[in-house]
Computed example of a mutant assay.
Amino acid sequence: MISSFASKTLFICFIISTMTCFVALATDNNPLQDFCVADANSPVLVNGLVCKDPKVVTENDFFTSGLNIAGDTSKNLVGSNVTTVNVARIPGLNTLGISLVRIDFAPWGINAPHTHPRATEILTVIKGTLRVGFVTSNTENRHITKVLNEGDVFVFPEGLIHYQQNIGHDNAVVIAALSSQNPGVITIANAVFGANPDISADILAKAFQLNKNTVKQLQARF
Rank of each mutant, 00 (worst) to 15 (best):
M1F: 02
I2R: 00
S3F: 03
S4P: 04
F5G: 03
F5E: 07
A6W: 04
S7C: 05
S7I: 05
T9K: 11
I12K: 05
C21Y: 14
L25A: 15
N29L: 05
A40W: 14
P43H: 15
V44S: 15
V46H: 12
N47A: 15
N47M: 11
N47V: 13
L49G: 13
L49A: 14
V50P: 14
P54T: 07
V56I: 13
N60L: 08
F62V: 05
F63N: 04
F63I: 08
S65I: 09
N68Y: 08
V78Y: 04
S80W: 00
N81Y: 02
V82T: 06
V82K: 01
T84V: 14
V85C: 09
N86M: 11
A88N: 14
T95I: 06
V101E: 12
I103F: 07
A106K: 13
W108G: 11
G109D: 08
I110H: 09
A112Q: 04
P113N: 01
H116S: 01
H116N: 03
A119Q: 03
E121Q: 13
I122Y: 10
I122S: 12
V125T: 13
I126L: 15
K127C: 08
G128A: 08
G128D: 12
L130S: 01
V132N: 01
V132K: 01
T139K: 10
E140C: 08
R142M: 13
H143M: 12
H143F: 14
N149Y: 06
G151E: 04
F156N: 00
E158A: 06
I161G: 09
N166I: 07
G168T: 06
G168R: 03
H169C: 01
D170I: 01
V174A: 10
A176N: 08
A177M: 15
L178W: 13
L178I: 11
P183D: 15
G184P: 10
V185G: 08
I186H: 03
I188M: 05
A189C: 01
G194Y: 07
A201C: 13
D202A: 12
I203L: 15
A205H: 10
F208G: 05
L218G: 07
R221V: 10
F222I: 11
F222Q: 05
